[in-house]
């Protein structure tokens, strides 16, 4: 078996200075994601799922534990190296798109490649290809302000994908979309995952979105609470998820 894309061991995150007021956002979480997996992270608000994502995406530093992405230990890197690492190995899709509104769709998608110093002649074909995959080839010359929410999020997805990162990290990518756009984005993501072997990790609180994943990790109070795998159809999986969520709700 290949080395996992994401491998985290006993990761802790403490807020506040050592003393009485410390609060643990993560209390020692361990799991790994294999190449080509589509994993969802779920949990109620305040469970630590956003902290977990921030730590994996190198935007935040873990207080303790080991985080390896694509075989590289990121916990000892300096901020400049982390930035380079993000730009090469990670792709982001945010809830609020985070497109740069004064760049065209084409320029937005091309940005990660430009940043890595890819020569101009190679950028064009890559952008075209990824745009075609996500069905936004017609929109390349438009500005984000002229796009619908769904189109914006596809653009964001294309940007996350264009430099062929080790993994795509989604932070509630469907959060700002209506159900139709959300479905179409999730289908596109599934397609990327299944047809192109792209690894995806997605944080969501929405059971419907989560049902597109192959595996879901539930987090509560900073700890891994449960893990379920999809074994049959999406509809069945959806119900299973709802059951776990109900459990989570009543447990307290």
């Amino acid at each position: 078996m290949q080395a996992p894309v994401v491998n985290i061991q006993d990761v802790k995150k403490v807020y506040g200075k050592s003393g009485a007021n410390q609060s643990y956002a993560l209390k020692g979480v361990s799991f790994s994601i294999q190449q080509g997996e589509f994993v969802g992270i779920m949990g109620p608000s305040g469970s630590g799922k956003t902290t977990l994502l921030n730590v994996i995406s190198t935007l935040d530093k873990a207080s303790d534990g080991v985080i390896k992405i694509a075989g590289v230990d990121i916990s000892k890197m300096k901020s400049g190296q982390l930035a380079d690492f993000r730009s090469q190995k990670l792709g982001f899709i945010f809830q609020d798109f985070n497109l740069i509104e004064n760049l065209t769709v084409y320029e937005n998608i091309a940005l990660p490649l430009s940043l890595q110093g890819v020569p101009s002649r190679k950028i064009g074909p890559s952008v075209q290809k990824v745009a075609a995959t996500l069905g936004i080839a017609e929109l390349l010359q438009k500005y984000p302000a002229e796009l619908s929410g769904g189109q914006k999020q596809r653009t964001a997805a294309a940007r996350a994908l264009v430099h062929e990162p080790a993994i795509i990290l989604g932070d509630e990518p469907t959060g700002a979309l209506d159900s139709k756009n959300a479905t179409s984005l999730l289908e596109a993501m599934t397609n990327l995952n299944e047809q192109h072997g792209v690894s995806i990790m997605m944080v969501t609180h929405d059971a419907f979105s989560a049902s597109y994943c192959q595996r879901i990790l539930f987090i509560q109070d900073g700890e891994l609470y449960k893990e379920i795998r999809r074994t049959s159809t999406r509809e069945v999986f959806y119900r299973e998820i709802l059951d776990v969520l109900a459990d989570l709700g009543t447990q307290k």
Binding site: S57, L59, S79, G80, L82, A83, D84, F85, R86, S87, Q88, L90, F92, F94, N98, L99, I100, L111, P112, L115, R159
Partner: peptide, 9 residues
């Protein structure tokens, strides 16, 4: 946003 997608400071 640029910082998030990995542009060095």
């Amino acid at each position: 946003m640029l910082h998030k997608i990995g542009v060095r400071r």
